[in-house]
Each structure stands twice: as structure tokens, then as C-alpha cells.
Amino acid sequence: MRTAVLREYGEPLDVTERPQPEPDPDGAVVAVEACGICRSDWHAWQGHGEWADDQVPLDYVLGHEPAGRVVEVGDDVKRFDEDDRVVVPFSLGCGACHDCQTGHGNTCSDGLALGFERDVPGAFAEQVAVPNADYNLQELPEGVRFRDVAAVGCRYMTAFHALAHRAEVGGGDWVAVHGCGGVGLSAVQIADALGARPIAVDVDEDALTRADEVGASVTVDGAEADVVAEVEAITDGGADVSVDALGRAETARNSVRCLRARGTHVQVGLTTDAERGEVPLPTDWMTRWEIDWLGSRGMPPARFGDLLSMVEDGALEPGKLVGREVPLDDVSDRLAAMTNYETEGVEVLTF
């Protein structure tokens, strides 16, 4: 099968042939129809994460947002058969531990991250192997296109879990979203669907235009305005919930400082080698105003039904975020474009 292999950090991926995967007894092999190209792939491609013992290995296949058809299942798999249409979450749980059994598989201590760890090569390939298929695979509703849900396995589900489950966003809440790349745009659309009032913050006019198109109540140009003051003015005192969807020190601090008393910050964006996982915060101010800080990573497989049902009935439309479809040979160019934030919404590899 054709794959795109990481040979050196920051260098073009090597598009080459590799043997087709075989399923474990409890696993499945999925033919990839579409796979999102995510900023987390860019972090991995750059070699980030060594400060958290989280650097991806070389001679490895990236890609962690696939959707496709099951082509083979192991002998122990009960829920899935060949030709089933599925979405593959990147946060793969073991299915047996306390966290998995209580609905928190995204924090499984024995879990694996698809496209980031040696044991689970990623989906910039024609096929991808998925362990613990009965627990991890998610059935894709009929009528929903593969390319439209290619980001659901990471960015979209991450934004949904962050807002619906972690921050418990409700009707009328002001939700500030700092950074309108793929996960930020997902957060804007999801906040709007949940009945909240999203404020999209970015320094790029095209990103703000796209945010407006997918549901932003207000947009703020961070290149022209004092972000904190602008959000406070729009909301008459500060946002109820604020999301750092970029992972820079500036956006994290802006996200915290633009909150009203007892507001909630949600950290979704991962830091780069400029921050190396550490961001200074106004902790005394946060204590004074009882600000909550929440981390959010992926989404438990057990809660995918909440999201996919809203996609199926049209309440959520992840396909509107797709800005470009690309072939396997062009994935390296699109990763390079992320370095200077030159991508278009959610970009998707399609076969």
C-alpha cells in the first residue's frame, strides 16, 4: 500500500510502498477514504514534544483523523464487519481499565495515540490498523460523507468534548475562541450549535471570514485590537468560557484574562518549542476571580454518539470547515504551509 513516511523532522515525507497491515485478534483494518491534515501532525512532523517525552519516532507514518471502510477484522471482533463505514478516534482506549469502563477512554493509562506512537502507525496511508476495534471504532451514519467527517477523529471531537462535556457550555453563554484554525473553527461551529454566542479571535482576515461563515456571533481581529479589552466590551464584563485553540503563550493568557468572574478557560492547543509545554499565567488574578482552568484532549469513544447524532441530523456540519482536498503526494506541502498559518480551514487527504 502507498504511505507517506516521516524520515527526518521537518523534511518532506517519503511517499512509498509498505506492506498492508493485518488486524490483531481484537482489531480491524480500515481502508482510508479520507484523513484530516491536522496541526498536531505538524507538531509531530516538526519533532516537537521531546519536553514531554512525546516525540514521534522516525520512519513512521503520521495521520490521525481517518474515516473509511472496514476491510478486515480479527477473530474476536463482534461489532464490526467488512465494508462497515467508520470513523477512527485518535485516542485509542484499551477498553478494559477503570477509565475506559467509566466512559473516559481518552485518558486511558494503557491507551495509544493513533499516528503518534510506534505501536499504532497512522493514516497517511491507504490502510490503517485499529486495536480494540469493538471499543474504539465508531460507526459512521449513512449519508454522511467521509471527507466531511475526516477531522471528527481529532479536531472536531476535541472541540466538542471541550465545550459540551468539559466546560458544559449552555444556551446564551459567551464563548471566546482564540485561534481559528481547524480546531478553533470547529469550536466556533459547535458553540453556535449548542446555543452559545461564539466570539472568534484571530489575526488573519480569511480565518475570521470563515469563522463568521460557520457561526461566529462576533469576530475580533487580534492584529488590530486589544483582545482582552475587546472581548470584555462585547460581553459586558468577560466571556463565560474561553478556549485557547492555538497553544501560544499569548493566546493562553488572553484566553484566561478575557473571562468574567468564575469563568472557565479550556486549553486545547498544544504548545510549540517556543513554550515547551510551559506558559506563565496570572495565578493570583485567577484565584481572586475563581477562574477555572480545564485541559481537554480528544473525546472518550463512549461519547461519540452525542456528536455523530448531531452530524447525522444536520445540527452540526463539519463538512463546511473543509477548505481543501489533497492527494497523498501533497501532504508534505500542506504540512509546510502550516508553519506560517497558510492553510485553508480543515484540509483533508482523500484517496
Rank of each mutant, 00 (worst) to 15 (best):
V5F: 00
E8N: 15
D14A: 08
V15I: 00
T16S: 13
E17I: 04
P19H: 07
P23L: 05
D26I: 10
A28Q: 02
E33K: 13
E33C: 07
G36R: 02
S40I: 04
D41H: 14
H48E: 13
H48D: 15
W51Y: 07
D53M: 13
D54C: 10
Q55Y: 05
V56S: 08
L58H: 02
L62T: 10
L62Y: 04
H64G: 00
V71A: 08
V73M: 01
V73H: 04
G74A: 04
D75Y: 09
V77P: 11
R79L: 03
F80Y: 12
D81P: 07
R85A: 15
V86I: 10
S91R: 11
S91W: 02
S91P: 06
L92T: 00
D99W: 12
Q101H: 05
Q101S: 08
T102V: 06
G103P: 03
G105C: 08
T107W: 08
T107Y: 15
C108E: 05
D110G: 09
A123W: 02
F124A: 11
Q138S: 09
L140N: 05
E142D: 14
F146M: 04
A151S: 15
R155M: 07
Y156F: 12
M157S: 12
A159F: 01
H161I: 04
L163A: 02
A164N: 12
H165Q: 14
R166H: 02
A167S: 09
E168I: 01
V169R: 03
G170S: 02
G172F: 01
V175E: 00
V177S: 04
V177K: 07
H178S: 05
G182W: 02
L185R: 03
V188G: 01
Q189H: 00
A191V: 00
A191P: 03
D192N: 15
A200Y: 08
D202S: 06
D204R: 03
E205V: 15
D206G: 05
A211N: 11
A211D: 09
D212V: 02
D221C: 12
A229K: 13
E232R: 15
A233M: 09
I234C: 06
T235V: 07
A239M: 10
V241F: 07
A245H: 08
L246D: 07
N254D: 14
N254T: 13
V256E: 13
R257Q: 15
L259H: 14
R262M: 10
G269Q: 06
T271C: 06
E275S: 00
L281H: 08
T283N: 06
D284Q: 04
M286G: 13
W289F: 14
E290K: 11
E290R: 10
E290F: 09
I291N: 10
I291E: 06
D292L: 07
D292G: 15
L294G: 08
M299V: 12
M299D: 03
D306V: 01
S309L: 10
S309Y: 01
E312W: 06
D313E: 14
A315T: 15
A315H: 09
L316A: 03
G323Y: 10
G323L: 06
R324G: 06
E325D: 09
V326Y: 03
V331P: 00
T339D: 04
N340S: 12
N340E: 14
Y341I: 07
E342P: 10
V346C: 00
E347L: 01
L349H: 12
T350V: 14
T350F: 04
F351Q: 08
